[in-house]
């Protein structure tokens, strides 16, 4: 497996229109192929802004951002077809059924016919959705919606998956299922960028993390090395609080 950079940002900045403060104040990072990379930070640290920029949903104000060596401002179909986004909110169509949502996003990713059917069936099986597949999404539980939201971002087997707090509001059982799935996906060589508030998740899943606060990276490295380098910290949670403090955020 090559370890070419998949995501590269250099002094990446973002200021929202009308905002006095920059949401990102010069983020520089490199994520290589096959990494399970965690972005950790308190609320309003800039995690979702970074993901939105990398996906091309919002433009950056200064610096540079590349996916697969190409500037993301190109916003090309080639780039779009190589990554999958699993957003924090359930970005699905509530009046469609579970299977209709999965098929629709599969088609939008360029899957058709037998391939689409096989991928959809595989996902349904993996995420235990067979008995729910014909239910209208708005009538499904939060756990089912969360699973469909995940499938819609990975059905096309992208090289890079960006997950923005994918376990928000899910129970332990589903969390374990998602973790197992993501670990297996990462083992196949898929690069994963994962944002979360849960430090135990990051410690368990990520090969490398960056902790960001107020739009800046305050530390990055392998979780175990970061913990070892911080006296008095026996886990990532302690390290996180040491670095970001206990002050409430937005």
């Amino acid at each position: 497996m090559s370890h070419d950079p998949v995501i590269t940002t250099t002094n990446l900045k973002k200021r929202y229109k009308g905002s006095a403060e920059e949401a990102l104040k010069g983020i520089t990072l490199t994520i290589r192929q096959g990494e399970f990379f965690g972005i950790l930070g308190p609320n309003a640290a800039g995690k979702s802004t970074l993901i939105a920029i990398l996906c091309g949903i919002i433009p950056y104000s200064a610096g540079e951002a590349k996916l697969f060596g190409r500037n993301i401002s190109q916003n090309s179909d080639w780039l779009k077809s190589r990554f999958g986004l699993v957003p924090q909110e359930i970005a699905l169509y509530p009046s469609l059924t579970v299977i209709e949502n999965i098929l629709f996003f599969g088609q939008m990713h360029g899957l058709y016919g037998k391939k689409l059917k096989s991928k959809a069936n595989e996902s349904i099986k993996t995420f235990y959705l067979a008995e729910h597949k014909n239910k209208i999404l708005s009538k499904c539980s939060g756990g089912i919606k969360r699973r469909v939201n995940l499938i819609a971002g990975i059905i096309h087997e992208p090289s890079l998956v960006l997950l923005d707090e994918p376990t928000l509001g899910v129970d332990t059982q589903l969390r374990i299922l998602i973790f197992d799935y993501l670990k297996a996906l990462n083992k196949t060589g898929t690069t994963i960028l994962y944002t979360t508030h849960y430090m135990d998740e990051a410690e368990q899943l990520c090969s490398r993390v960056s902790i960001i606060d107020h739009g800046r990276i305050i530390t990055d490295g392998k979780p175990a090395e970061l913990i070892a380098a911080s006296p008095g910290c026996n886990d990532l949670g302690h390290l996180f609080l040491n670095l970001t403090g206990t002050e409430l955020r937005d």
Partner: peptide
């Protein structure tokens, strides 16, 4: 509001 607009913008459509 659902975020499907943003999601669609990340797709090759």
């Amino acid at each position: 509001l659902l975020g499907t607009k943003d999601r669609m913008m990340t797709l090759p459509v």
